[in-house]
Amino acid sequence: MSDGIQLQDVTKTYQRGGEELRVLDQLDLSMEAGHFYALMGPSGSGKTTLLNLVGGLDLPDSGSVQVAGQDLGGLRGAALSAWRARSVGFVFQGFNLIPVLSALENVALPLALTPLSRKQQRQHALAALELVGLADRAKHRPGQLSGGQEQRVAIARAIVTDPRVLLCDEPTGDLDRDSADQVLGLLQRLNQEMNKTLLMVTHDPSAAARAQRIVHLDKGRLGGVEEVETQDPPGALA
């Protein structure tokens, strides 16, 4: 069983307005561990659905999904939640930080599911914030941060439990160009220096160009996998 991401014959349908909508259609896809994948395609092509299936947020109607050596078909409820807490980190387009918690508390949230002491949780969260260059904003609430800073806090939250897979849904969609560059550089470094497997949904070709491979989806089927030839070199992690 591979440490990467494998989808075999995956089909997913939704009911919308009484009509059955086939979002993924017998999809076969294999992604290697430790690589940075961009997922592109037109709206409705199934990008986010694929991301949800890989993250264990949803289950396929048929087919199998294996992530980091785990067949998700055998997991339900609390077991699936526990697997998510251990194995994947999420970065959302809208940042999705908890507005009533400070940056440090947001980052420390996933650690509540670990046996770490409160002091250790704080240390880990601070280390993650340092990694994204925001240790000096630890006590700030999301409303006191810029969009780029919020997304970096969200990335720190995603990596604080040291998951093997990072799933990013349009992480730069709400950011200006400079902030987007910073976030993409950070994701690249996490992939290259910490060997995280990254899967990033994006509409932006320049963002996709920061990945190692681009997966194209079209109408729920695989449109092809493109190797990115040249990448901007990321700076070293702090």
Binding site: S81, F90, N96, L109
Partner: peptide, 14 residues
């Protein structure tokens, strides 16, 4: 509602 979704995505049980 949205924050509840985030907490669940992070691995907190329903």
């Amino acid at each position: 509602r949205r924050e509840a979704g985030v907490l669940k995505a992070l691995g907190f049980s329903d």
